[in-house]
Each structure stands twice: as C-alpha cells, then as structure tokens.
C-alpha cells in the first residue's frame, strides 16, 4: 500500500517537529518522492545521521511501502 504525500509529511513532522518539509511526488504512484527537510535539529549531525532521522520517522516504511525517497536535509 503506497504512502500518501500527506502521510509522508505527517510522519516526518511528528518525528522532527520544527521541520519544514517540501515534498515532490515524482511519479504520482505514492512510491517515488523527493523531499527536502529543513530543521535546526540537524545541526552538528553528519549527513548520515540527518538522513537516518528522517528514515526513522517513517518507522520501517522506507524501502518497503515507500520504494524511493530522494532526500535532501538542511539546517536552514
């Protein structure tokens, strides 16, 4: 069952409350998104740690329901 854009944003915001989340649906199939996540809480963290925070917010959906998420993380 693919993931809706709204759910994707909701999960990320729940885990990273101060984040600004910009999502683009790449194929309209609920399976391929690109997302830019901006949050102060990324400060001092490596890129891997930042991306893991976003993946963790999807509690297991990344790589399963959600096939592809092109991700950019920024501190501002």
């Amino acid at each position: 069952m693919p993931l809706s854009k709204e759910d994707l944003e909701k999960y990320i915001k729940e885990r990273i409350p101060d984040s600004t989340v910009i999502i683009e649906d790449l194929r309209g199939d609920g399976d391929h998104y690109s997302a830019t996540v901006i949050s102060k809480s990324f400060e001092g963290k490596t890129k891997i740690e930042q991306h893991k925070m976003v993946y963790d917010s999807l509690n297991g959906k990344m790589g399963n329901e959600l096939h592809a998420l092109m991700l950019k993380t920024k501190t501002e």
Binding site: K47, I48, H51, K52, Y55, G60, M62, G63, M70, K72
Partner: peptide, 21 residues
C-alpha cells in the same frame, strides 16, 4: 549499516551513504 535502502557505498570499511549522499 542500519540503513534502509540500496545502494550503499563503503570506503575503507566506513559506510559513506546511499545515492543521495
């Protein structure tokens, strides 16, 4: 690697990241 997707790049035994990174 506790990383949910493929591909994964390793350099000198260190996990560098997936495609985005």
């Amino acid at each position: 690697s506790n990383w949910p997707t493929i591909p994964q790049l390793y350099v000198k035994e260190e996990f560098i990241g997936g495609c985005d990174i």
